[in-house]
Design a protein around this nucleic acid. Sequence first.
DNA 1: TAGTGGTCTAGACCACTTT
DNA 2: AAGTGGTCTAGACCACTAG
Lengths: 252, 252
Amino acid sequence: MTSQGGARQPKYQRIADALKAAIRSGEYGPGDRLPGENDLMATYEVARMTARQALAVLQNEGLAEARKGAGVFVRAFRPLRRRGVQRLAREQWGSGRSVWSADTEDRELVVDQIEVREGTASERVADALGVSPGTPVWVRGRRFVLDGKPVLFATSHLPADIVAASAIAQIDPGPGGTYARLAELGHEPVHFREEIRSRMPSATEAERLSLALGTPVIQIVRTAFAQGGRAVEVNEMTLDSASYVLEYDFDA
Amino acid sequence: MTSQGGARQPKYQRIADALKAAIRSGEYGPGDRLPGENDLMATYEVARMTARQALAVLQNEGLAEARKGAGVFVRAFRPLRRRGVQRLAREQWGSGRSVWSADTEDRELVVDQIEVREGTASERVADALGVSPGTPVWVRGRRFVLDGKPVLFATSHLPADIVAASAIAQIDPGPGGTYARLAELGHEPVHFREEIRSRMPSATEAERLSLALGTPVIQIVRTAFAQGGRAVEVNEMTLDSASYVLEYDFDA
DNA sequence: TAGTGGTCTAGACCACTTT
DNA sequence: AAGTGGTCTAGACCACTAG
């Protein structure tokens, strides 16, 4: 085979581009089935691996999703809006509502994979809390599933000397959640810092969030500070990037 | 070949896991060369495509980077810290410094691919500015290259009726940048909203930021509001996720 | 020039989903 | 039962990088 009919791009790229153009043009809408491997082999007269590579491009860009035995489908997006500042306003948890109720509105929220245990601060957590590694902390882990789709999991770390005897060391921290309890203990959070990164998930994370190929995670590390500047909580959250838009409002 | 020696995982996954374990254990550090396709074929007695697939796993997770003709190498990370709130404080641009100087510290910053032109608001931009699609706007595009590595490109949109006759319609907007000029025009930004998304880049974006496989982009859409609530700028930024950590500080 | 990764072919068997 | 994507083999030629 002499290959290349004058094209400078690889075949699989040209096929992928054609599919992307068809999606942009509206020929295939969210949820629609795209031409499969066999279709592409016939249409473009290429080998199976080349057709697969073309479809892999779309999947790795997050535009399409393969379902084994069924086909390759255009992905749909309906992200939640997470208002970083308002959701942590004192009125929110001060009124007995949980912080997450601000994000979910009328959708069905399930919290599972709950874990509450005592442990010690890793180097990263110790650094954020301003303590030495190995310091006793309480660890609170959970996962959020919205309308059947896992969207986030989080692990919160709190200094054991503050929270050990409180409801924070229980599965259910009570109305208003952890922050309301911290306030009662005299360690009311008055300031927050959120650090945001994005990267591709590990295999474990991809499974825990049921992530399609080509879906990054957003990692948020929030540190809560009490009056006087003491860090009273470090919360490490891992979000499905296809399920979230983060919003931060602030003044000049 | 009878295949499978009792393994339940695909071969390429087992090979990929072995490589990841070797990286975690420190056997291969940042910048080190990993075993190549030929090495893996010999070591694990697999075909070239299977070895390639194993290496593709690492690349798609952002752990490794292939350099044509050279090998596959462990990636290194040294992100910039972008302080979302402080960098936009009035003192910053009020003092004649640019907003980005807050991020870069002592590293070498080059701004290129500069574009300043008049245009009309797309639906998305019009929506953010609170005007009708098609409204005249000035568009300011540019790319930031730090120590030779592109890290961000941004496109800013400003209502033409405000900025047309000002330095904002010039290549160089002068000391303190666009925001200082807006203030002089009586439209000083007093409030900001940043929306953050993450996704895999398109081929164009990947090229413009020299992104390795497995590197998501972070997209920030910032809207600046003047006193009275009028939106005076919408800035769409696309960041290399491997080059940035975003930070937001705020009170409860 | 030797070795590397990038692309591509032409087969094969499997597990899975749908009809 | 038919069709789909997932895995795998065994070859091949190419462009690029390095010593």
